[in-house]
Computed example of a mutant assay.
Amino acid sequence: MTDVPPRKRPDPAEVRAAVLAVADWLGDESAPAPSRPALAAAVRLTARTLEHLAPGNSVEVRVPPFVAVQCIEGPRHTRGTPPNVVETSPRTWLLMVTGLLTYDAALGAGELDASGHRADLVAGLLPLVPLGPGASRTE
């Protein structure tokens, strides 16, 4: 089996624009839901940003139905279910990515599944595109 070449790092401006396109919905769940393509873009671009920020294969981050990426250096996983998995919904992922919800709060509320001793390392990498209080919405 040959290694797949790494994906190109997402453009930070494109990532921020994709997140801003869904920001109203993230801030107010009663706001109109974003289109599926807009939601998919925000989820995929932020997950791929994480993949580039923390390259590796020891933790798999899953945000069904849009993306699964491997990140964080450590033991490489090649077959079957990975031992270190973080899985959540698109909205919860984006709330964590923007700092509007912490990893620990999502985990405590049952909105995030994390397994394996390395899964929690993802928490230290978030937020990726801060939108919380005091964060600038433009860069």
Results as ranks from 00 to 15, higher is better:
61 V>D: 02
60 E>G: 13
29 E>Y: 01
49 T>G: 01
92 T>C: 13
63 V>D: 07
50 L>D: 04
108 G>F: 08
22 V>A: 05
102 T>Y: 14
33 A>T: 11
92 T>S: 10
31 A>Q: 04
76 R>F: 10
52 H>Q: 09
29 E>I: 03
111 E>T: 00
34 P>S: 03
41 A>K: 14
115 S>G: 04
97 V>A: 15
46 T>I: 05
104 D>F: 06
32 P>T: 02
76 R>M: 15
101 L>P: 05
77 H>N: 12
45 L>P: 11
78 T>I: 04
87 E>T: 08
29 E>C: 00
75 P>C: 10
47 A>V: 08
49 T>V: 00
81 T>A: 09
26 L>H: 00
83 P>C: 11
41 A>P: 07
85 V>S: 08
73 E>L: 03
97 V>H: 13
96 M>A: 06
95 L>D: 03
38 A>F: 10
85 V>T: 12
87 E>K: 04
101 L>I: 06
106 A>L: 07
101 L>Y: 10
42 A>G: 00
62 R>W: 07
106 A>F: 07
113 D>Y: 13
52 H>T: 05
70 Q>I: 03
56 G>M: 09
92 T>F: 02
98 T>R: 08
85 V>D: 13
31 A>E: 00
36 R>P: 11
94 L>C: 06
21 A>H: 02
79 R>M: 08
104 D>L: 08
82 P>R: 10
26 L>T: 00
53 L>T: 07
51 E>Y: 01
39 L>S: 02
108 G>A: 11
23 A>P: 07
71 C>Q: 13
50 L>Q: 06
43 V>I: 05
90 P>A: 06
31 A>D: 01
107 L>W: 11
29 E>D: 06
52 H>Y: 05
94 L>R: 11
65 P>R: 05
65 P>S: 00
114 A>P: 13
103 Y>H: 06
28 D>S: 04
51 E>C: 03
117 H>W: 12
91 R>S: 00
105 A>M: 03
104 D>E: 15
81 T>Q: 15
85 V>R: 15
108 G>H: 02
83 P>V: 06
64 P>A: 09
57 N>A: 14
88 T>N: 13
36 R>T: 14
110 G>D: 03
114 A>H: 11
